[in-house]
Design a protein around this nucleic acid. Structure first.
Lengths: 197, 197
DNA sequence: GTCTATAAATGGATAGAC
DNA sequence: GTCTATCCATTTATAGAC
């Protein structure tokens, strides 16, 4: 018996807190060594545990990836919610949203790969987690509709553009701003080209 | 002594041929199991060798990736060369080039990841291989300039768009045509937006 | 809930016989 | 040029003591 944590919490709360500590450590390792560049031993060491103890909190490494995936999309959803709560007009919302998405995506290339590319062959997001991703996409769709971009094909162009800019930035100019510098201009071009299609 | 190959070839020719067989097998495994989903044992088995024998032809697994990378860009360069040789006008060349790039990229998602994304943390293309990539980019740049897209920032928008469309297609609609269907429209939009910037 | 011990496999890579 | 044998590290995951 050595929880080492404030124990005026329920068992479930303590468990959830530990899960979060593990997920945070996994993100940190992913940022440092890449999404697949660490093992459960390393992760355990990071949180002061041996690898087998992690199985108390996650059924497998892929289950852990799934939680990271879900959490990543929850963070992105929060970004869009903060946007919607603001008092920006429809077009400004699209403009700011694009900048924020880009910033979100390039801030963590491991997260970019997990959320938007299919980099781990064995990992497929669970139905629940994938639903979160769809929710965020719906948010983007909504935002674009409000600005006059109404057809579904145009939405696909926007997602390609946004992920493309971010991917190019982290792949071909990490730490720089080559693609960051063209985000606004690209938004202008797409707005002009996809409105009232 | 058991070459099992027609021996009216020089030693270097036989060596080069075997290297090619290995690279082809590596591509096949990458397509089937993902870029990192196979080991040297599997690769050896695929070409009728034990893993250690592969070291006669490649210094390391990353050296093999490097050859795959170079070969991928040589194939892409060939695509653009066939385009330049045709009798298309500048704008038609951009339009056809975009379609061909998209087709090339989605035809093999492992190749897409190796050539355009940074998916294997330990792999960095050699200077020689990277020069090939630059050559192909210059080709694209040339093609766009001829069509009136002259500023470097616009080129960055185009590469983001092209890779973004392909990545979305293989990540979110593999086997489908959701993003394939918007390539032409996207080219129109970008041509309208980046010409004579 | 955490540990040790270990399974069972796989990883890339090297030595040295033939 | 290919092999066997092997190294040494590492992987995810499980069993069972505490």
């Amino acid at each position: 018996m050595k929880p080492a944590e404030p124990s005026n919490l329920t068992r479930d709360q303590r468990r959830e807190r530990t899960r979060q500590v593990i997920v945070d450590a996994a993100w940190q390792l992913s940022r440092e060594r890449g999404l697949t560049g660490w093992g459960l031993r390393d992760l355990g060491a990071q949180v002061g545990m041996r690898a087998p103890s992690l199985y108390v909190y996650f059924a497998s490494k892929n289950a852990l990836y799934d939680e990271m995936y879900a959490q990543g999309y929850r963070e992105l959803r929060a970004v869009y919610e903060s946007l919607r709560t603001g008092d920006l007009g429809a077009e400004a919302q699209v403009r700011t949203g694009a900048r924020m998405f880009f910033q979100f995506a390039v801030a963590d290339s491991a997260r970019l790969q997990l959320l938007f590319l299919r980099v781990i062959p064995s990992f497929v997001p669970s139905a629940t987690s994938y639903a979160l991703a769809s929710e965020v996409l719906a948010e983007l769709s909504q935002s674009l509709r409000a600005a006059g971009v109404i057809d579904p094909a145009a939405l696909d162009i926007w997602t390609a553009m946004l992920t493309g800019l971010a991917t190019q930035q982290v792949s071909n100019d990490p730490g720089g701003s080559r693609w960051a510098d063209v985000v606004d201009r690209t938004v202008d071009i797409l707005l002009a080209g996809t409105r009232l299609a």
